[in-house]
Design a protein around this nucleic acid. Structure first.
Length: 559
RNA sequence: GCGGGUGUGGUGUAGCCUGGUAUCACAUUAGCUUGCCAAGCUAAUUACUCGGGUUCAAAUCCCGGCACCCGCACCA
């Protein structure tokens, strides 16, 4: 099997990627994409856009990498991403304080620093490795913090995922979708996580590329009208019980293995993308999250995993997140993000409702008055005193603050909070997988011979232009041909150095699918050879038709 | 973050134990040559991870930082 070291040195030698800031000693978890890498990464993104935006008709947005603290309080990242680490004074091993309290406290994950410390002392917890004394837990947050504005300013964080923007701007987006469900919104951008120990090259970076789609559904109608063919895609599934099987996406839905048709659809779409861009389908599977691995709000979650030299590695997570994200932002911001769904027929109902009196509520609750009012509207008529819950606290509301109204009302629909299905791609991982799965190290004439068998539309360069000999008359024509091809939109590189075989070898190694060679017959006959990377076969094509010939090859080969 | 290992041109390496001009190959550039799959000749460019210490002298010995690899922990 290909080993990662080989891929890394290859990547550096041919300019795909290398560690950042090398001349200053480097910094773990950061990588530069070089000329060929940038082009390849860009092609992956373009392919992704073609699938999600053009074919599935989703909307794209582009939002800031930095967000104010409130956003991450609401999203849960501030809490979830903060771990408290305690260190053993003896053996210096670090442990997560909440893990040490597992089984001793009811919900150790939710404890604050001082509570954790108290609990550790109360239970007399010692280092599980050597039995030594533990230090006071220190907070560690996986989000990069920063300040917004001058002076003390406002606390901000670099986003740990791009998804929150789609939830935060939901009202604007649903307006753009003309308030019809379902609709999908995507974003490609960078995410940032201050990993404790980044390892494994591109797979676990501190700054990385993500492509995420949030598809919003009516909770009872999780169906996406897309390409029906996709539901017949064979998927390799490893479910929660570790059962391993291959079946069509549609069948897995019918059998209840995948919980929901839309989830299955987006898993199939995910597979199509990965295979299109060069992930080996025989080394690809979907693994269902275990119950305790899944976020508590998630209804179901499957990771697309690729088999790499590092082992099975998550490339994409496809999750049914329910209404969790929107509900969180509704609760924290007070913004109503519901979508109004009209009934087929308006209904008449006898109703008792509570109408809040804001004039009374205002002076009483000040900043919270609006939220109290909303809670009153939602509350059922009380037996005695009205109790409402606002922002985690229970408030008794005097009966002077609202009036009871009773009567027939016409209800033409209801407001619901949409559910969301989220395919979330780690693009750098896809990138690495495409390299590792397609770098074919074989042999030719007793010598090692490398061919990067990339799909043509993913390859960083599509055409190599070579004069057969380094003679001025050939070089002139070759450069003219190059100009024409570049004008027709093909990524083209010129190489006139060394023997022709050497140039083919150089081109094969970086995955250039077609090489065009200009020889003496090209001067008279006006045609050139086009050589195919994978078969090494050559055909002669008139120069006048070359652009169209290559463009059509590109179209047919990219599916 | 803890423990162990490693760090030499763009890539892969020899040298390190036993301190004294840094080896070789490939790659790259230029010229010649070359009529289709890493041919040849000539020349050129490029390296001891960084900082400190010991020493007349450090790639080599010692200390520290950084990076990478392996294990542990971490990986919403």
């Amino acid at each position: 099997m290909m080993d990662a070291e080989t891929v890394h040195s290859f990547a550096k030698r041919r300019g795909f990627y290398w560690p950042s800031y090398e001349i200053y000693g480097g910094s773990a978890g950061f990588y530069d994409y070089g000329p060929l890498g940038s082009a390849l990464l860009h092609n992956l993104m373009e392919h992704w856009r073609r699938l999600y935006i053009i074919r599935e008709g989703m909307y794209e947005i582009d939002s800031p990498s930095i967000g104010p603290e409130d956003v991450f309080k609401a999203s849960g990242h501030l809490g979830e991403f903060t771990d408290y680490l305690t260190t053993c004074q003896g053996c210096k091993a670090g442990h997560r304080a909440d893990h040490l309290l597992e089984g001793l406290e009811k919900n150790p994950d939710a404890l604050e620093a001082d509570e954790l410390w108290t609990a550790l002392k109360e239970h007399g917890v010692k280092c599980p490795r050597c039995g030594g004394e533990l230090t006071e837990p220190e907070p560690f947050n996986l989000m990069f913090g920063t300040g917004i504005g001058a002076g003390k300013g406002k606390k901000g964080y670099l986003r740990p995922e791009t998804a929150q923007a789609m939830f935060v701007a939901f009202s604007n987006l649903s307006q753009q979708a003309r308030k019809k469900l379902p609709f999908g919104v995507v974003q490609i951008g960078k995410g940032y996580r201050n990993e404790i120990s980044p390892r494994q090259g591109l797979l676990r970076q501190r700054e990385f590329h993500m492509a995420e789609a949030e598809i919003f559904f009516h909770p009872d109608e999780k169906r996406w009208e897309g390409d029906e063919e996709l539901m017949r895609t064979q998927l390799k599934l490893v479910d929660q019980n570790g059962e391993d099987r291959a079946m069509a996406a549609g069948e897995a839905t019918d059998k209840g293995i995948i919980r929901g048709e839309a989830l299955a659809y987006f898993m199939a779409l995910t597979q199509q993308f990965l295979v299109d861009v060069g992930v080996d389908p025989t080394r690809l599977r979907f693994r269902q999250h275990l119950q305790d691995e899944m976020a508590h709000y998630a209804a179901d979650c499957w990771d697309a995993e690729a088999l790499l030299s590092y082992g099975w590695t998550e490339l994409v997570g496809v999750a049914d997140r329910g209404s969790y994200d929107l509900s969180q932002h509704i609760a924290h911001s007070g913004e109503d993000m519901g979508v109004f769904i009209a009934y087929p027929e308006p209904r008449k109902e006898h109703r008792i409702r509570l109408v809040p009196d804001l004039k009374k509520l205002g002076p009483l609750y000040r900043g919270k008055a609006k939220m109290v009012a909303r809670a009153i509207e939602d509350a059922a008529p009380p037996e005695g005193e009205l109790m409402v819950e606002v922002d985690g606290e229970t408030i008794a509301v005097p009966d002077t603050c609202y009036v009871k109204e009773e009567g027939e009302v016409v209800i033409s629909g209801e407001r619901i909070v949409p559910h969301v299905i989220e395919p979330s791609y780690g693009l750098d991982r896809v990138f690495y997988t495409v390299l590792e799965h397609n770098l074919d190290i074989g042999e030719k004439g007793g010598e090692e011979y490398r061919v990067l068998r990339l799909p043509p539309d993913v390859a960083p360069v599509q055409v190599g232009i070579f004069p057969l000999m380094t003679k001025p008359e050939l070089e002139t024509v070759a450069k003219e041909v190059m100009t024409v091809l570049r004008k027709s939109g093909l990524a083209t590189t010129y190489d006139g150095s060394g023997s022709i075989g050497r140039r083919y070898a150089r081109a094969d190694e970086v995955g250039i699918p077609w090489c065009v060679t200009i020889d003496y017959e090209s001067l008279d006959g006006k045609d050139v050879t086009v050589r195919d990377r994978d078969t090494a076969e050559q055909v002669r094509i008139p120069i006048a038709e070359l652009g169209e010939h290559l463009c059509s090859l590109l179209r047919t080969r990219s599916g």
